[in-house]
Amino acid sequence: MGLLTLADHVHDIAENSVKAGAKNIVIEIKETSDYFWFSIEDDGPGIKNVEKVFDPFFTTRSKKVRKVGLGLSFLKQAAEMTDGYVEVKSKLGVGTKVLAKFNKKHIDCQPVGDLAITFFSLLLNQNVNFRILRCRNENCYEIETRTIKEYFGEIDSSKKMKMLKDLIYELEKDIKEE
């Protein structure tokens, strides 16, 4: 078992920021035909033992629920398989930044996967301010929690969820076609 797509990794790392209690999370993704690079920066509490963070047995979650912390070690393994890298920078009381690069042309690179549903799922956490910048070659799109609140208010009905989801898919489709 493991995370199967690059979108899953983005999701999982951003979920760490959400769970850590970050108020602001900035996600940047730059993709070309050669590489997939992302950066996820939060203003959460930071990580005390950054050097241990890739250890699959390092987790601060309740041991009743979770005995292992797999997210970051999955990411490291998957990125390094493509001759890419992962970097975690963290400062207690300031926040955490995770950067990763995957070489898409490498035979072991996982597929990009569904970024639209990843963003949608993250954006449903409306108590967190997200800023997402997603680029594919020269084309980018940007999504902010602030704008969603302005136009939708709370995403509290299936109509709104469906509409937000469709909008994100449309943005994603646009940068794929251009």
């Binding site: 910048l133 680029c135 020269e138 084309n139 980018c140 799109y141 940007e142 999504i143 902010e144 704008t147 969603i148 136009y151 909008l167 994100i168 449309e170 943005l171 646009d174 940068i175 251009e178």
Partner: peptide
């Protein structure tokens, strides 16, 4: 020049 489209632009249209 990179082109940036925003969710806001899209929402304005709709």
């Amino acid at each position: 020049m990179p082109k940036i489209k925003s969710l806001e632009d899209l929402m304005k249209i709709k």
